[in-house]
Write a protein that binds this DNA or RNA. Structure first.
Length: 651
DNA sequence: ATAGGGTTAG
């Protein structure tokens, strides 16, 4: 309703100013149609020649001028009607009159009408546009461009590529614009081959120094995973403006080269290139920072944003919230969130997800309630955040309740992420069969991530029979990874199933499948210190291991008992406790305790998931040694202070 | 003649 009655902002400012109602519009339409009806309607046929229509007999000189001027006025009034049309019934009337008169042969009229129905939001209808387009006897390049452009933004981008081929068949040379619209279509469907053909055309038509065209093409290569080709193309762009740099940066982000992306921020500003980053550059940089946990760089970008007056942009604020929370710096994330004007669903979701990944589940749910109080409607991703908050804190009933309300109250259809959170939650809570039933009852196909989640839960609860079945599902999807074999071995190990364990081991060795070794890093005074499992390569290794021994005995006094469920070897519990003490995060934390005074925050990043034992170890240590510890693992952050953790002990 | 291109938040 509101969408339909909304005036066309760009074209109808005059309408709005004088507040012309639709009734008055109808009146003027009616009077126009009345004048038309005095003219005989010209039946249009595809073979009609426009010149014969508009050229009356030579001996009627006076009449001809009159007729031309009359046609002219008629056309002018129609064009102004098209420009101010906001109602579908009027549209249909105008349509009928264009098609039923000689105006179908007027390319301007056709173009204006086509723009109206293919691009302007309230009346946009692509099927209808195509119908009209097909009624134009001789569509020109502009008509084609309009259609291809509309298709490039629609759900049927490949249709734009077909239209481009059609245009070429008709021998209408496309201009650079046509080419750029087609490339956009190719980007949408990741049609690299089509793009390469267009590239050949760009060269043949002599547009090879059109920077914008090349930039679009770069994006295509980037989206298709051809980052090297995209870079090559970048070198060929004669005038590299900020957008070109932005595309290059986004290319790095899309192709897992966040580190390169960060580097480009300084390179583009250097003496050689002298290109100023804009708001979009900042947005991309923040994403790279979030991927890399690069808090300091993120703070630099934040400063740049403030200095350049971009801080009012909600997109940037939302991105800052995500960057800070993905760097484990919730205080800063909340600071940005609090200070921002006009929080939308993205801002709230960013904050909720931020709280969730940092283990503050109850706070996330509270934020969710607050969001509803302020009248912002949650969407799919908000629920992903809320449900993952529940799964990080073991709030089973809360999650079930929210999941139920999600579709009933908010009309959000459960997706694979929502189910994933529930499976994780049920699995960790030990309700393995219920989790399995849930997966089997889903009306969407379970992906490998879901099965992997359940496999992880089978490991926690030493459920080897279900674990085997779940692993079978992963094999069915041909999606088993090295880490999955490790989980399976862990499950066999915990269940004391040494034969099966040996079997898997043998298999891994035969197939030369490499498992990723655990690796933790800690940054002290700007230097990155890296530790592998049982690492002895650090220059201060003797001190570190001595420290670790001391810590272990101190923690034992404080009630720490090694949790042995993560070990693979067939040995007695006492030996296991010993073996566990050399997990990479323990080494990194021991080094942190060694190298920092009490009261400091120790930040550790781990490539895999932290095990229960290391979680408990860090939690108790934070109290005994008075350090705040933040461990970032593959999926989340764990905050520890004064012997407690943000997720209330729920691992 | 007619319109008009690239990057972008959770």
């Amino acid at each position: 309703m509101t969408a339909m009655s909304q005036p066309l902002r760009s074209n109808c400012s005059h309408l709005k100013d004088h507040n012309i109602s639709s009734t008055r519009f109808s009146t003027s339409l009616a009077s126009l149609f009345k004048t038309w009806s005095d003219q005989p309607l010209v039946r249009h046929s595809l073979n009609h020649n426009p010149t014969t229509l508009n050229s009356p007999q030579p001996h009627h000189q006076q009449n001809q001028t009159k007729l031309i001027s009359y046609t002219q006025t008629r056309k002018e009034s129609l064009l102004s009607l098209i420009k101010s049309c906001t109602h579908k019934p009027h549209l249909l009337q105008i349509h009928a009159h264009i098609v039923g008169s000689s105006l179908i042969l007027d390319s301007t009229v056709c173009f204006q009408f086509l723009s109206l129905i293919s691009l302007s939001p309230p009346l946009k209808n692509l099927t209808y546009s195509r119908q009209f387009f097909d009624q134009i006897p001789k569509p020109n390049a502009i008509h084609y461009n309009t259609m291809i452009r509309a298709y490039s933004m629609s759900d049927f981008p490949e249709e734009g590529i077909y239209m481009y081929r059609d245009l070429r068949r008709r021998g209408l040379g496309g201009n650079p614009l046509t080419l750029s619209f087609v490339i956009k279509c190719c980007v949408r469907v990741k049609n690299l081959l089509g793009g390469i053909q267009v590239q050949a055309r760009i060269v043949r038509d002599g547009h090879q120094s059109d920077s914008r065209l090349l930039t679009t093409l770069m994006d295509l290569y980037s989206i298709c995973g051809k980052d090297d080709d995209a870079c090559k193309l970048f070198d060929e762009i004669p005038h590299r403006d900020t957008v070109a740099w932005n595309v290059l940066i986004s290319c790095c982000l899309h192709n897992s080269r966040s580190r390169d992306a960060l580097g480009l921020f300084d390179i583009m500003q250097s003496e050689t290139y002298r290109c100023q980053p804009d708001d979009v550059t900042c947005l991309l940089m923040l994403q790279a920072c979030a991927n890399l946990n690069a808090l300091e760089f993120g703070e630099r970008v934040h400063k740049y944003i403030e200095e350049h007056g971009y801080i009012g942009a909600s997109k940037l604020c939302n991105s800052l919230i995500t960057m800070y929370s993905r760097c484990g710096c919730l205080d800063n994330a909340y600071e940005v969130f609090k200070g921002m004007q006009g929080k939308n669903v993205v801002s709230w979701s960013a904050m909720i997800i931020g709280l969730a990944v940092n283990g503050y589940g109850r706070e996330a749910i509270e934020a969710f309630r607050e969001m509803q109080r302020t009248g912002v409607l949650p969407d799919e991703q908000t629920f992903t955040g809320v449900l993952s908050a529940c799964s990080h804190c073991g709030l089973v009933d809360e999650a079930m309740n929210i999941f139920d309300r999600m579709s009933k109250e908010f009309g959000v259809v459960p997706n694979v992420h929502h189910y994933g959170c529930l499976v994780d939650l049920l699995g960790r809570a030990g309700r393995l069969d219920q989790a399995y039933q849930l997966i089997m009852s889903m009306d969407i196909k379970p992906d490998s991530k879901i099965w992997r989640t359940l496999l992880g839960a089978c490991k926690i609860h030493n459920h080897d029979t279900l674990g085997e079945r779940v692993f079978g599902h992963l094999m069915e999807l041909k999606a088993q990874e090295a880490g999955d074999y490790v989980l399976l071995m862990n499950i066999y190990s915990s269940a004391g199933n040494w034969e099966k364990l040996a079997e898997v081991r043998k298999f891994l060795k035969e197939k030369a499948i490499q498992t990723t070794p655990g690796c933790s890093t800690i940054i002290l005074k700007g230097t990155v210190h890296e530790f592998l499992v049982d690492d002895v390569s650090h220059p201060r290794k003797d001190e570190i291991y001595k420290m670790l021994d001391e810590i272990n005995s101190q923690l034992k006094i404080a009630g720490y008992v090694a949790d042995v469920s993560s070990e693979l070897h067939n040995m007695g519990d006492e030996e296991k406790g010993y073996a566990l003490s050399y997990h990479s995060e323990k080494l990194a934390i021991a080094f942190g305790v060694l190298a920092t005074p009490p009261g400091t925050t120790i930040r550790v990043a781990k490539n895999l998931r932290t095990c229960v034992d290391c979680h408990n170890f860090a939690m108790i240590l934070s109290g005994v040694y008075n350090r705040k510890i933040i461990v970032r693992d593959r999926t989340r952050f764990h905050h520890f202070w004064e012997g407690s953790c943000s997720c209330n002990g729920y691992w």
